[in-house]
């Protein structure tokens, strides 16, 4: 017979094992992609798939020879950070005003903003393409920054709004009685308190911009093309070169994946959308 304590321990071990199994299963596709990127093309196509093989760097060398990885990576960085910065500059004041000076229209404005996200991008692709062409924004980083800011803005406003909502109004009133202006209120009082929430808003915006693959594929050609376009360029004409495809995919995902892992705690803590009381 097991004692109660032993039973608990056994339960912990079983649940832990189960959790590990689930996690490894979910992670497997990524693991397999990274593994394949170190195989030769022949090993990559082998039947049955091989877990053990002689690793090679030839795929990475090939990519380095064929395309300028850092050019694409730099575009991704600029576009993600640029749109996140611009988005925050717009979202923070809007959320501040909505959270602390609520009017009759605040809620409907917020919901309307969210509803703009439900537009299928493909429905407005042609007009946007034509507008971009007229304004010389096609294949520019600035054009992509604009688009990403606009598509992420509703979610950013909403997230920041929910964080601001959680701040007791007394704190702001105390600052206001001290003679603080609205800007001072935001910079000295609000931002320090809601640092965590703002950080996760920034993180989410970076992730979404980094991975966006509809506008970046349709509005860029070469000079502003981010990593999503680099991956796409390896997928269509060379669909059968899986090891190279895996290598380029690994390179495209690695920065944001590592970034996500490092900031995972922050993201988990902050990503509640006001759903947790």
């Amino acid at each position: 017979m097991l004692t109660l304590k032993q039973g608990r321990q056994l339960q912990t071990v079983l649940l832990g094992t189960l959790a590990w199994l689930v996690a490894l299963t979910i992670f497997f596709p990524i693991f397999w992609m990274i593994l394949t990127s170190f195989k030769t093309e022949i090993d990559a196509f082998a039947t049955p798939p091989q877990l053990f093989f002689t690793p090679t760097l030839e795929n990475y060398l090939h990519i380095d020879a064929r395309s300028d990885y850092f050019h694409f990576a730099w575009n991704s960085v600029v576009v993600s950070f640029g749109s996140t910065l611009l988005g925050m500059l717009l979202a923070v004041p809007a959320a501040y005003s909505m959270a602390f000076f609520e009017t009759k229209r605040t809620k409907s404005t917020l919901l309307w903003m969210l509803s703009t996200k439900m537009l299928p991008p493909v429905g407005v692709l042609v007009p946007i393409y034509l507008i971009f062409k007229d304004f010389g924004l096609l294949d520019t980083k600035f054009g992509l920054v604009l688009i990403y800011t606009l598509i992420n803005l509703p979610i950013m406003v909403w997230m920041v709004y929910t964080y601001f909502k959680e701040i007791p109004k007394d704190i702001l009133e105390a600052a206001r009685l001290d003679g603080a202006t609205a800007l001072q209120e935001i910079y000295r009082v609000l931002l320090p308190i809601s640092k965590g929430g703002l950080a996760s808003t920034v993180l989410l915006s970076l992730i979404l911009s980094w991975n966006e693959a509809f506008w970046s594929l349709n509005l860029t050609a070469s000079s502003a093309a981010p990593l999503t376009a680099l991956v796409a360029s390896y997928s269509s004409p060379e669909g059968l070169f899986w090891a190279k495809l895996s290598a380029v995919s690994t390179l495209a995902c690695a920065p944001i994946l590592i970034f996500g892992w490092l900031s995972q705690k922050q993201l988990v803590r902050g990503l509640s959308f006001g759903a947790v009381k």
């Binding site: 959790a19 996690a23 979910i26 596709p29 980094w210 991975n211």
Partner: peptide
């Protein structure tokens, strides 16, 4: 529940969210 390596399990579980849709489709 608490178990050994929970931090790593969490990281593994949320990883697919960071992968580009095009990449995950191709993989």
């Amino acid at each position: 529940t608490s178990f050994w390596g929970r931090g790593i399990v969490r990281v593994l579980l949320i990883s697919p969210f960071f992968i580009m849709p095009t990449v995950s489709a191709l993989v």
